[in-house]
Design a protein around this nucleic acid. Sequence first.
DNA 1: AACAGCGTATAATAAATATCATAAGAATTT
DNA 2: AAATTCTTATGATATTTATTATACGCTGTT
Lengths: 229, 229
Amino acid sequence: MGETSCSCDKCQLKSLFFSHVEAHEMSDICDIKVEKQYSKGETITNEGEPIREFMYMKAGLVKLSKSDIDGKDQIISFSKPFDFVSLLSVFSSKKYKYSVTAIEDTTVCILDLDIVKKHAQQNAMFAMDLMLHISEATDKIILDNLAIKRKHLKGRIAHVLLYFSEYIYKNDEFELPISRREIAEYIGMTTENVIRTLSEFRKDKIIKIFGKDILISDKKRLKNISDFG
Amino acid sequence: MGETSCSCDKCQLKSLFFSHVEAHEMSDICDIKVEKQYSKGETITNEGEPIREFMYMKAGLVKLSKSDIDGKDQIISFSKPFDFVSLLSVFSSKKYKYSVTAIEDTTVCILDLDIVKKHAQQNAMFAMDLMLHISEATDKIILDNLAIKRKHLKGRIAHVLLYFSEYIYKNDEFELPISRREIAEYIGMTTENVIRTLSEFRKDKIIKIFGKDILISDKKRLKNISDFG
DNA sequence: AACAGCGTATAATAAATATCATAAGAATTT
DNA sequence: AAATTCTTATGATATTTATTATACGCTGTT
């Protein structure tokens, strides 16, 4: 984890989160901002810890997860910049309900939650912008989990591959940012079955595998498996 | 579905949703309100239809569901008054993403969405109250689905029974508001397995069953199954 | 009254998934 | 460099869950 500096005026995310925040409010918010870098694998927020910051992602990729009593992790979702990530329960909870971990090198902008809250309580358009983002982010999570739930093992694996290919990397070839075990934690199946199914897709010439590098060679069939298989 | 009248001043939910809305705003919002009654089984909102209304529940119980391509339903969650129900995507989508159906006789207060939106955009405290409610409702859905996901058949059935007993009816004895098939649609298992598991619980003297009437006779064991079995 | 449709119920069998065991390569620690 | 741990991989077996079939009671319809 390292710190870097940036200018809020030139921030590419200003228009997304703060389009209705006026200049004098903006400087109040930005004065004590910190931009932090997290390397792949580093924890950004920890389940159970008090929420003191308002964070948004500027670059990278993270996973949201939660541990059960036995210490086994479940992955709730992944988020990239412009998604709303660590903010999900920021306004409705005193403590983080999920952990957020970088699965690629990630840059996060950290603001003071109380100051952001203060301005949201005074600036209705800002509050509505926040609500819009939170709603979209949570809707996406709910719909994605619902889609996974109605599929079987192969369909779930196909879903995950297409998710990274089409939604995250926008490329038929990509490096999986997570391990087979993490895929299992996401789709609710065992690691062995994830590995087996990927091997099966490889044998059926649907994908090529080189360690974490995946190439989707038959997207049509993969989509068919995701939708019906 | 029938219409009844009520007074917003005396509404028990005023303090929950509109505590920061001033009198003159309140009358603007309430002037064209409609209170509707839905009988058990009636549809309140339909997936895909345009969102024109801002609704909140005053009494009853509803299910949120979504149909897949084959017409098979998945139940996302249940909501009772003080939950936020049909509003989940009100501020982030033009169309309902889910259907809402009464599973008990239900009273809903219907306001004009544009008017509510207008006031939220002018009244930051009101906007923040709405955000708080939406966040809490969606958080609950995400966490509940996550809890179900990590359990097996028996644990899921136990979870559902405890959910209705402890969270909805606050009683060891209650009438299931949904069919075995709907339980299956909620937990992602087949109807037969739901029926079989309930029978098994009955044989093991954990519950008593009289049609839709359930009595939990060994809550400790049921909780144990929900947590570990 | 006869009938169809639906929810509940149970059993036998088939299919999907988990568990257990083993092993080899990669990454990390000593 | 050796040792340890983690990840990927595969097979055999056990367990869980789905499918298919059958039946019965209830409700509403003709």
